[in-house]
């Protein structure tokens, strides 16, 4: 479903050139639960931003369902982000001035659903992450774990092909983190394709496949089972 061929991305820092992603080949199939591990600064986030069409690679090919997405226009990429990709970030990235329900509605409204349809769907996904009753709360009125669950509901709202989560438990205490990972596992059991970035091995172990990054290089890890 996802195929990266010889993908490279580097940053210029003054005199120095940092190659954050170095000739990476990677493949993910529908229904997989993959975790990407590696030390800080190894290029995990950069790779995920490229996977999520938030950033572009310098060279290489990115095929999404056999379609080359590197050459698409801004607007076409926006449509793919909206319909096919769901993001979960370490710092939640909820819009602070609108409530939980409205946050989940945002991608649905960009998708073209009417306000009424969007509300119904958003409530459905808030129910799925066990947050019914909190939908009128502003993000700052929710705990970290609750905020991350709103973010997951939002990522799920347009029924994406893949969920990309960049250290989703990084800002949470370990008990809440375990809950969030449990939620991810259940979603995966329901057929949802998920890629999780983490540097916490106990988190990574819950995935069925682990890949490691080191200085921009990607290496298939041992089967955790």
């Amino acid at each position: 479903m996802i195929q990266l061929i010889d993908l490279t991305k580097s940053f210029q820092m003054g005199e120095e050139t940092i190659t954050a992603v170095n000739h990476v080949n990677f493949q993910a199939e529908k229904g997989e639960f993959i975790s990407i591990v590696g030390p800080s600064g190894s290029g995990k986030s950069t790779l995920m931003n490229i996977l999520g069409l938030l950033d572009t690679a310098d060279s290489g090919t990115y095929l999404l369902n056999q379609e080359d997405v590197t050459t698409l226009s801004d607007n076409q990429q926006a449509v793919i982000r909206n319909a096919k990709i769901g993001f979960v970030f370490q710092s939640f990235h909820l819009l602070p001035r609108i409530n939980a329900l409205e946050n989940v509605m945002v991608p649905l409204l960009y998708h073209g659903y009417s306000e009424k349809q969007a509300r119904e769907k958003a409530l459905f996904y808030l129910d799925k992450v066990n947050l019914l009753g909190r939908e009128k709360h502003l993000p700052k009125q929710l705990s970290g774990g609750q905020q991350q669950r709103v973010a997951i509901a939002r990522a799920l709202s347009c029924d994406p092909e893949i969920i990309l989560a960049d250290e989703p438990t990084g800002a949470l205490d370990s008990k809440t983190g375990t809950e969030i990972m449990g939620l991810m596992e259940r979603l995966n059991e329901g057929g949802q394709t998920i890629v999780v970035i983490t540097h916490d091995m106990s988190v990574a172990k819950r995935a069925r496949r682990v890949v490691e990054m080191h200085d921009g290089n990607l290496k298939e890890g041992e089967d955790p089972q």
């Binding site: 319909a83 990235h93 991608p107 960009y110 939002r154």
Partner: peptide, 10 residues
């Protein structure tokens, strides 16, 4: 955030 959720330029 809005762009990551699928907002187009317009």
């Amino acid at each position: 955030i809005r762009k990551s959720l699928g907002a187009k330029r317009r």
